[in-house]
Design a protein around this nucleic acid. Sequence first.
DNA 1: GTTGACCTTCCCACTGTGGGAAGGTGCAGC
DNA 2: GCTGCACCTTCCCACAGTGGGAAGGTCAAC
Lengths: 137, 137
Amino acid sequence: MNISEAADRSGVSAKMIRYYESVALLKPAARRDNGYRDYGDADVSVLQFIRRTRDLGFSLEEVGALLTLWRDRKRPSREVKRLAEAHITDLERRMKETRAVLRTLRDLAQHCHGDERSECPILDDLATPPATRRRKH
Amino acid sequence: MNISEAADRSGVSAKMIRYYESVALLKPAARRDNGYRDYGDADVSVLQFIRRTRDLGFSLEEVGALLTLWRDRKRPSREVKRLAEAHITDLERRMKETRAVLRTLRDLAQHCHGDERSECPILDDLATPPATRRRKH
DNA sequence: GTTGACCTTCCCACTGTGGGAAGGTGCAGC
DNA sequence: GCTGCACCTTCCCACAGTGGGAAGGTCAAC
């Protein structure tokens, strides 16, 4: 099948399929006589795998590692789990950071009237140097 | 003061200060006779403002808008609040997405033995096309 | 006058993704 | 046949931020 059909079936754009090939995440696709890339169902499965892992926030490098493990039928599940847990830890860290930022922002927004008056605790806080800034309890 | 001192005092790297100037987030710095950029306390304050807003996850474009509002003493606080709330909404959406991903990943990792055995529900799930995949309740 | 710590500009890299140009192909309708 | 349209190919550009580093100028201490 053509690249656009593989794209439709896998949910990965043709642009990205070519890109993944160019960075060696995918093996070079088979070519027809006219030079067009030619894909089969197995290729679509790989693309769906990539799509799924990307949706779960793995980096392309991690996707590559997972693909290798996937292809190796004798891999120890330990390695897969380790990758997944490292990613979980990373997401948890980022969530925590975002939560802290959200707390701050909500607090600031709450105290801002948000009307025609120019007085604004948000800007006041943003302009306050770190050492001077004190969190309230 | 030199750029590196302004960097130290503001927490913004010299590299970034030059970059912010190049994208017109900052007004061109004053220059000494030797061509060196020259900063004063007011400049450091601006840099700290930028550093703070960046830490709160605002994009450079948003930082620019906030800076403009900050400089305009007659701005309505409504505008500031609107920007802050838009950012909050954005962060909340991303948190929600990350939470969903985390739920999935934790669920998958939990069911993976993580030992020498090759059997691995994580890879099995990643390889499952969306239509076939069913969430458990 | 040499050394080392600054400064300057300029280009490159990263992560992923999309846009688009310039040119070749394949197929359907006339 | 020929035309038009929808594909395909490669190649370059852009985005948002940030860092690395080269090549060259400056300044101060010794």
